[in-house]
Design a protein around this nucleic acid. Structure first.
Lengths: 154, 154
DNA sequence: CGTGGATATATGCATATGCAGCTAATTCCA
DNA sequence: TGGAATTAGCTGCATATGCATATATCCACG
């Protein structure tokens, strides 16, 4: 006899992979594994690479500013910076004009590691595009939809 | 004067949001926040809801089997089960035939919480679909592409 | 009937994330 | 100008994840 309880419509839908949240997270996990592996030689994760890139890009990079740009909680970024500072890739100093803020800066090594790793990031990116040429359009469409959701937030 | 170093093509691409990995992860973070908030009243995360749903669905749910289905590392699921067992929503017993395996089971309360929470999951899912009707197609396309990537793995 | 290889779990270690709450600094306004 | 409201950042707490590794089983083969 089958001891499994009867399915409900909602549970059935959730399990068939049609939950937007679960499906997207799954895709995210796969890609992160792929990109992280591509960057492993540089001892950087894709998240850390992005953080370094933002610090290099901005005129006046602070924790909150980067967190906003990466659309993540400031506390998460704050913690994410720790291994980078520990590794000597990022340094920081309080802002002269606003002592609450912490102004970030890439060290010489941080800059070099970022540049070197970005070449392997490009390889991973190209490889994904090569294997699945439409993915760019797919991701673009998904982000457009997601952005519309966010717009309704406040 | 502008102290920012010159951009490289790769870094420029990475920062403009065209990194498949970062874009997907960002979308994932947003959706997780949204669904987790929708489930907060039930003290469940979207991840925990999925885990409970799989346990309820399978004839013979074990850690590895569910990890495979959710496409995540077995150790991650193993840890994810802890709060569920601690909360009394899931119980387990060693498999009679194969003592290495741990057979999972929903408790009465686990079953009730799952059913109750799935109604709110449906609300979140419907709300997302309502605000962005195309998202289903977007996610489907993305997953199809991602699945093609995975096929090239082994 | 061993024993080596494969399988199922768990743990140590590290990053990734978010929320709540705390402190310091700044800003705004009466 | 002085206190309220806001802003930046941090820390405590909890889950989410993956990799490497240790342990217990199981299984197939000699």
């Amino acid at each position: 006899m089958d001891r499994r309880p009867p399915e409900t419509p909602a549970l059935a839908e959730l399990l068939t992979g049609s939950c937007y949240c679960l499906a997207t997270r799954r895709a995210s996990r796969r890609l992160v594994r792929l990109y992280d592996a591509a960057l492993a030689d540089h001892d950087l994760t894709i998240s850390q690479l992005a953080t370094l890139a933002w610090i290099r890009h901005l005129r006046h990079p602070t924790v909150q500013r980067i967190a906003d740009l990466m659309e993540m909680d400031q506390s998460a970024l704050s913690r994410g910076l720790m291994p980078l500072e520990r590794a000597g890739l990022v340094s920081s100093a309080p802002d002269e004009k606003d002592k609450r803020k912490r102004v970030l800066r890439l060290t010489e090594e941080g800059d070099q590691r970022l540049i070197a790793a970005s070449a392997d990031w490009q390889k991973a990116q190209d490889e994904v595009a090569r294997q699945q040429a439409d993915i760019g359009a797919d991701v673009t469409r998904l982000m457009a939809g997601i952005n519309r959701l966010a717009a309704n937030d406040g």
